[in-house]
Design a protein around this nucleic acid. Structure first.
Lengths: 335, 335
DNA sequence: TTGTACGCGTTATCAG
DNA sequence: CTGATAACGCGTACAA
């Protein structure tokens, strides 16, 4: 079943059939209708390989993320797929894990598949160390096709970033906590990626601007896990390091903080205020429900795909688009 | 940069280069090494379109789900992608939403992309009405390529199902609740899919086998939402319909039940026992943590991909593989 | 408005 | 073990 079968049955040449398929105007209405009906009758679908061979594109985008089962990334993947589909692009999903070797391997795989562009989701793709060569594979790939970073930051030719203003978000909420009377604010985070460092610096700056000391015990990196967060807070508690607020870089850590408070019969928010990040479904699960920073995944993804389409059509696209986060106030804070 | 460039530079024919690429044994070690080094030097990658054109396969599987941002489905997508990748297959992701029209459209799209197989994840793809023609598009597609259902049930040629024994799981936990003294058990569910009906029938059968009355107010379908579950339980409460246990078809509903208990200062599990489903991260968020049925997504996905590979290699694959669920006991039950 | 003929880069067959 | 050559199905100059 190919274009020849259709052309024969319709009594026209394959060129005419091709014109009809691709909406070329130079076909008489009459033959167009005849071809269309034959195509329908035969249930004909153009062969994408043959088409791709000539055009050297399959209208396919590679989406890379470290782990699509992560709530944040799963949402991102969902929105990206939706937007790409809307623009008639397929999505090839690649979950790379965190090792550099795997990331490189997957990226090369996508290049060899001749995808039209690649979207890297999450800041975990990038080393935030400015002196490293760990990001070179991305710069190199960008020589072949456009690369979009969602919530990641890397500057280079043909690389476009869409990110959330994490630093301001954390700064602002930390500042809110201080203004509402909190003196000892713990910050828990899960990664030292660009975005991870950004958030941390927002926390520190808020303390400094309010002339509060930055206690090294009070900011701590831990695995993205409810239990781990709880454990660390317990450790502080046992060491008599007192604190009256916990800001986190992920809702799961905030859930851990809620559990810590429950274990020690602390009242939330009066004894302990808690702020989550990402405004995920987890924020609605705890009692009381979490105040959380909404990092605007959907907006980020929509913008990234919009930009990519603009790149394809030769339009001018900013290297870096920054979107502000929202603070969603619920019941783990009293402002 | 194509196979001709390589052949010329290596001083061999394109046939030999092709043999080297595809690991064909009939090449002398010496020429093989020479070709390999030229390929390396030129940074040559075979063109997938040309290859696909000849072989009529791109080693790509279509994964369809209604919504990849759903926690359960996100996990499934993650595991499927991982397993497919392990077998050197790419994954094209399609989130269809729930309308039949969209599902059909996406399926046809995948067919036209010449994927090698399609995996339908979640029971929401299928009408469980035996008299409907709503599933015909799947039967039709199965004439062209193998279709795997993960947690769905449809019998037909070239269709293979991997599913969890939901009925037994719900039966068993309901029975446990009754044996531990519960008299009035509410069952909350989110869908009337095959799996949805299966779970419900497990609940009813457990009541019947224990000579308890099945009260129509006590099993109720509601949207997959924490708030909705809580609202329905509140409604029962206001209507003085008493109950001492809630079994749900999804953890989110169970979270709603926990919130209901909190609102009315009911003790969990003594006043109210609660059972979730899917053993998702939500089960660890509440206080107390949820007893939940683990529906074994990972096993399901691994099995489905294994079966698919077996189908490709011409092996015999059962039409239906059933996997038992596990009950993960936490603190919302007292058995 | 329509048709012819070629190129796209592989793999596979067959002959040597 | 190696090489020549025919498919594979489509898009598109170019010709009519």
């Amino acid at each position: 079943m190919n274009i020849y079968d259709v052309s024969e049955k319709a009594g026209v040449s394959i060129a005419t059939v091709s014109r009809v398929i691709n909406g070329n105007s130079n076909v008489s209405e009459k033959t167009k209708l005849r071809v269309l009906s034959v195509m329908e009758e035969l249930g004909y679908t153009p062969n994408v390989f043959a088409r791709g061979l000539g055009l050297n594109t399959m209208k396919t985008i590679g989406i890379m993320c470290t782990d699509s089962s992560d709530i944040y990334l799963a949402n991102a993947v969902y929105f990206l797929e939706r937007e790409l589909r809307f623009n008639a692009y397929d999505s090839i999903l690649c979950c790379t894990g965190t090792s550099l070797e795997n990331k490189m391997q997957y990226l090369n795989l996508l290049l060899s598949k001749r995808v039209d562009g690649i979207i890297l989701v999450g800041s975990k793709f990038l080393s935030s160390d400015p002196d490293t060569s760990d990001n070179d594979y991305i710069l190199k790939a960008a020589k072949q096709l456009p690369i979009m970073l969602v919530n990641g930051q890397l500057s280079g030719d043909n690389i476009f970033c869409t990110l959330c203003d994490d630093k301001s978000a954390v700064y602002s909420v930390t500042d809110d906590l201080i203004k509402s009377g909190r003196k000892n604010i713990v910050y828990l985070y899960t990664s030292t990626s660009y975005s991870g460092k950004d958030k941390l610096s927002g926390y520190k700056k808020a303390l400094e601007d309010n002339h509060l000391e930055v206690n090294p015990d009070c900011f701590h990196m831990c695995t993205k896990s409810i239990v781990r967060a709880k454990e660390y807070l317990n450790e502080l508690y046992l060491n008599n390091i007192s604190f009256d607020a916990v800001v986190t870089s992920d809702d799961s850590l905030a859930v851990g903080a809620v559990k810590f408070a429950f274990e020690h019969s602390l009242n939330i928010p009066s004894d302990l205020s808690i702020v989550g990040y990402n405004n995920s479904v987890l924020a609605n699960c705890t009692e009381p429900e979490l105040t959380s920073i909404d990092s605007k995944v959907e907006t980020l993804c929509v913008t990234a795909v919009e930009s990519l389409m603009k790149v394809f059509s030769g339009g001018k696209v900013p290297e870096r688009t920054v979107i502000s986060a929202d603070l969603i106030k619920r019941n783990t804070t009293n402002f």
